[in-house]
Amino acid sequence: MPEFRPRIVAFVCNWCTYAGADLTGTSRMKYSPQVSIIRFPCTGRIDFMLLLKAFANGADGIIVSGCHPNDCHYSSGNFHARRRWIVFRALLDFLGIDVRRIQFSWVSAAEGAKWARLVNETAERIHGLGPFTDYHRLRGMGVE
């Protein structure tokens, strides 16, 4: 059996975490290549449906990250996002979907090291949880 390499999608805001991940690169810090970033203007833009789509299409884990509270480029997009995630997590947990699959965080443009640490720790945790077959097997017949 081939070694399990988790696939992790990171939904990040343009202004803080995307820039923070840039800094990780500029500082040449290393992290797990199993994480890929999709860029959004703000965490406030991130539709919960996109997280479901990521799981449905094979993601084993998700990172959602934006600006720290009070640092949002748009002043309050991250606060709105935070409310959304509070409710979303409660719902997933109620449905028996393991919320440890989703890591929420605030990573600022200055926190290149935090980004590397976050990715590695998340990758490790998802690796420990194994493939998200519980969800992936829902892709039964007729799914595009």
């Binding site: 390499r5 991940a21 840039d22 990780t24 690169g25 500029t26 040449r28 810090m29 290393k30 992290y31 290549p33 199993q34 890929s36 970033i37 590397a116």
Partner: peptide, 20 residues
């Protein structure tokens, strides 16, 4: 497509990096 800061600079040389 940011393959420098988010890829080449943060991963070791190898197939996984090219795949990413």
């Amino acid at each position: 497509a940011n393959i420098r800061e988010h890829c080449s600079w943060v991963h070791e040389k190898g197939e996984a990096t090219t795949a990413k």
